[in-house]
Design a protein around this nucleic acid. Structure first.
Ligand code: FES
Ligand code: FES
Lengths: 141, 141
DNA sequence: ACTATACTTGACCATTTTAGTCAGGTATGT
DNA sequence: ACATACCTGACTAAAATGGTCAAGTATAGT
């Protein structure tokens, strides 16, 4: 089970954004430099964050991105959902009554993976950007 | 974040094994047929389970595998560790003081991913094969 | 002794996913 | 006009995944 860079970068970038967007919009170039993430890759990520109304864009010189909501209202769930970093513990389709490997019923471990998925997602639902800001308040980036 | 088939199959196969090894060793062929998992793939998986003393093998006709411990003493952690299905939330090395992307210090989200890893692993440490057996006692496989 | 069963080992491979890069374009403040 | 910075889509190298295939070896039953 791995967390992909896309999800990790999305959160890193948004924490950075949340810390610096008090006065002006924050440009991806700045985030890229501060966090060491490829600018081109950041653009892909922010395109998705924008489509999901997590950030707003401002074009032109001095442009950049700002958060659309308060850090406390942006949960990890929202971020991950936006960039398609979802938790998948099974291959069988949820709606279908069929199990994995094309069996007629769900397999012996299906409930277990369902529980696991819920367990992980609950972590993402609890954590907000605000929590991460507090956690790093006294640290230098 | 995805759970790979290897980890999922390992647990499926061991639950199957635990249910049927009361009298005789269970052959991979049987598990393969009952659970719909490729025999060749199962062999790879069981080779690792054996190296990690989760199962014992008995060769020859009527041979197969048996558990080395009681189902209650086999946690998901043990199984996953055996088949290299580990939880990885970061790319930076734990021991190193350096952060991801070669930075001199750990990044703003590092603690978060550490927490996440602990959160997920605690699930695997709690669950044992025994739990899964109980869970499926009244069901037909 | 023969044979069927079933474990053992290691190499191989197609497909998919990941983690980006690259090339071009558009809007806007100065 | 021009620099900045967002925007879009195509492309790709490398790694991971989910297996397959081939050639064994050990053992129980006949
Ligand atoms: S995991 Fe859903 S049926 Fe096997
Ligand atoms: S995740 Fe460990 S330093 Fe960024």
């Amino acid at each position: 089970m791995k967390l992909t860079s896309k999800g990790r970068y999305a959160v890193m970038a948004l924490v950075d954004l949340a810390r610096f967007d008090n006065i002006n919009p924050v440009s991806l170039r700045d985030i890229s430099l501060r966090q060491g993430i490829s600018l081109d890759y950041l653009e892909q990520i922010f395109s998705k964050l924008k489509k999901n109304q997590i950030v707003q864009s401002i074009r032109g010189t001095q442009g950049g991105y700002i958060l659309t909501k308060k850090p406390n209202d942006i949960k990890l769930t929202n971020i991950f959902h936006a960039v398609d970093e979802t938790v998948k513990t099974v291959q069988c389709k949820k709606e279908s009554k069929k199990g994995c490997n094309g069996k007629a019923t769900k397999c012996v471990t299906h409930n277990l993976w369902d529980e696991l998925e819920t367990h992980i997602n609950s972590f993402f639902e609890k954590k907000s950007l605000e929590d991460l800001l507090k956690n790093n308040k006294d640290q230098r980036i």
